[in-house]
Simulated assay, not measured.
Amino acid sequence: MTDITLRQLEYFISVLDRGSVSDAAKDCNVSQASVSSALAQLEKRLKVTLIARGPARRARPTSAGREFGIHARSILSNVSDAVESLNDESSILQGPLRIGCIPTAAPRMLPATASQFGRLHPQIDLSFVEAHPLTVQQMILHGEVDVAVMYRKQVQMEGITQHTLAEVQLHALVSADHPVADRAGVDIAELIDDPLILLDSPPTAELLVSQIRGVGYEPSVRWLIPNAETIRSMVGLGLGFSLANAVPHPDTVTFQGMPVRYLPVTNPEFSNAIVGVTMAGTRLSKKLRAALDILRTTAADTDPHRWREQTAP
């Protein structure tokens, strides 16, 4: 395998991530011809087609390319870790770091994380991917992201290690004129007769319905909606209530400017945690440790209990 070089693997992975040879060339700061030549040499050596060229010169991996990409990422990651291990005394972190996140947690976690990295580790090439829980787990297992943020009860796949970032409390989202709107907390039994509007992001709705049934109630699910902002607007209009682990600032209103209320659900059965997940067996490099530390700080800074304390009279 002496004909295969790390540079070829680097260009190949860049094409996978960027979706075209031209974008990969810009990312790697080389010419398109260099990337194309490296890909051709790699495919010739392996005797398989790794990249299929589609319309508008877009590049998509073949089945062989996807499989090889998993191993190529692992090789590059191991080499990076090996180099890093020789420089453990250095406080400077650099190179790429890919963070995945479920859409409901992204507004809470990603902006402050990006800001912290920019301030503390400006030489890190940080990138983000938002995807549904099942997808981000697949991306972890395929080496497409280094760490992903989700909720503990959403983790369903083998081969993943969980790192607790913060405990979370489920909240009920109700309209500002709902009978329980001014309460400090609510039992799920007090809302069970209302229509329920849930986020359509598997397995989120299924898990919540199962938990409600587990405490002895049958929810009346009115709609499954893929957008949290749309759900907030529907609740603001009094069309039902919803449930969420991600709680925005108390001043948040709907798209139409209507106030809503997020009330802690007091049933202990609904406890959960926000976690960072990595591929099982992966060495926690300095970059990954820094990422987990920053994610924990972000989770603590956006804890809804802190906001309630800050806004209390």
Results as ranks from 00 to 15, higher is better:
56 A>W: 12
202 P>V: 13
292 L>T: 02
186 V>W: 03
91 S>L: 13
275 V>N: 02
175 S>W: 06
204 T>G: 02
312 A>S: 12
99 I>H: 08
298 T>M: 01
107 P>E: 01
117 F>C: 09
95 G>W: 02
106 A>N: 09
110 L>V: 10
241 F>N: 05
81 D>F: 05
26 K>Y: 08
301 D>T: 04
303 D>W: 08
164 T>R: 11
104 T>Y: 00
149 V>H: 02
8 Q>R: 14
68 F>Y: 14
211 Q>L: 15
128 F>V: 11
171 H>P: 12
177 D>N: 14
130 E>C: 12
204 T>P: 02
137 Q>Y: 10
77 S>M: 07
50 L>H: 04
7 R>W: 06
179 P>Q: 13
227 N>M: 06
191 L>E: 04
117 F>M: 09
274 I>E: 04
3 D>S: 15
209 V>Y: 12
44 K>S: 11
260 V>K: 06
138 Q>D: 14
268 P>T: 13
37 S>Y: 15
24 A>Y: 00
164 T>N: 01
299 A>D: 01
276 G>V: 03
140 I>D: 03
68 F>D: 09
278 T>E: 11
131 A>C: 09
258 M>H: 14
142 H>E: 09
265 V>T: 12
298 T>C: 11
41 Q>H: 14
278 T>H: 00
187 D>N: 12
297 T>Y: 06
132 H>W: 11
89 E>C: 07
83 V>F: 05
166 A>H: 00
235 V>N: 08
88 D>W: 12
100 G>S: 03
28 C>T: 04
120 L>P: 09
292 L>P: 00
310 Q>N: 00
34 S>V: 09
52 A>H: 13
236 G>A: 03
210 S>Q: 12
313 P>C: 05
82 A>T: 05
202 P>M: 06
194 D>T: 01
10 E>R: 13
188 I>A: 03
279 M>H: 11
300 A>I: 07
263 L>P: 15
18 R>I: 10
198 L>W: 01
80 S>N: 04
243 L>C: 07
282 T>N: 07
63 S>Q: 14
143 G>I: 05
64 A>W: 10
279 M>K: 15
88 D>V: 14
9 L>Y: 11
196 L>C: 06
124 I>S: 08
22 S>N: 05
